[in-house]
Amino acid sequence: MGTPLAAPLAGAGSDRAAVGARQRPWLAALFRTRTAAFGTFVLTVVVATALFGRALAPYDPREVVARPYQPPSAQHWLGTNDIGQDIFSELLWGTRASLTVGLVAALAAVLVGTAVGVVAGLAGGWVDAVLMRATDVVLTLPFLPLAIVLAAFLGPSLGNTALVLALVIWARPARVVRSHALGIAGHAYVEAAHALGGGFGHVLRRHVVPAVLPLALSQFILAVSSAILAEASLAFLGLGDPIQKSWGSVLFYAQSRGAFLSGAWPWWVVPPGLLIALTVLGFALVGRSLEAVLLPRLRGR
């Protein structure tokens, strides 16, 4: 691989045409297919909600504005929760928390994963062996049970949730990035850089990191979707921060305060569930499309 991608990337930063070339596949990927366009549309709406949802919300979701357990009405589109807060406003506010946890966890995971991957791939030898065995350990641990144990141990807060998710998510990007970095390290131009006296740090900075960035980006997008899903699962189980409004905490109170018994689930459980499903789907579609465009070798996998 490499030629269509690595060549312009190797010289990135020095000439504007190369920068443009790096940006174009991005945009193309977002609208390449109908499904990708749908994913992009969903993500745009979700991000806009995260940014402006608080201004758009009809009520402050922390305020008690009506009787508890009200069905949907003109005043409260999705009814009210167990203490009379507006569910629609809760969801608008909660978008930011859910998305932030997902993004922060995924970012941390991909940073760690990429660092581990490129160092392991480029250094080889015992460094590679040690890092990859650690990665294998994390990969073989069951994802959700591990997250549950960690979350119970660290205590509920959004920061801890992000930390827990990052701790269990980083291994997959590390594996993927390492295999890519291994390929790059074997290229003639990298060997040439070595031969010309380029040290480990120089080769890492100038050649390997820029080359794995597109891969890291698609891994990031995919990690966000699993982080959002996992955050909701943890919150639903009462292991998130129930004090913070998030999609998961809305589900937590719906489950623990009787939405399924009182028949309130169609407006209390289904909407946050749909939001989570749609957002995860949006990230997955965009991530796949990015991967396919930026890493054509992976297409059709």
Partner: peptide, 13 residues
Amino acid sequence: PASNPTRLRAAEL
């Protein structure tokens, strides 16, 4: 307590 929604809600109020 995280596992007791009634007490969590009480704290909130």
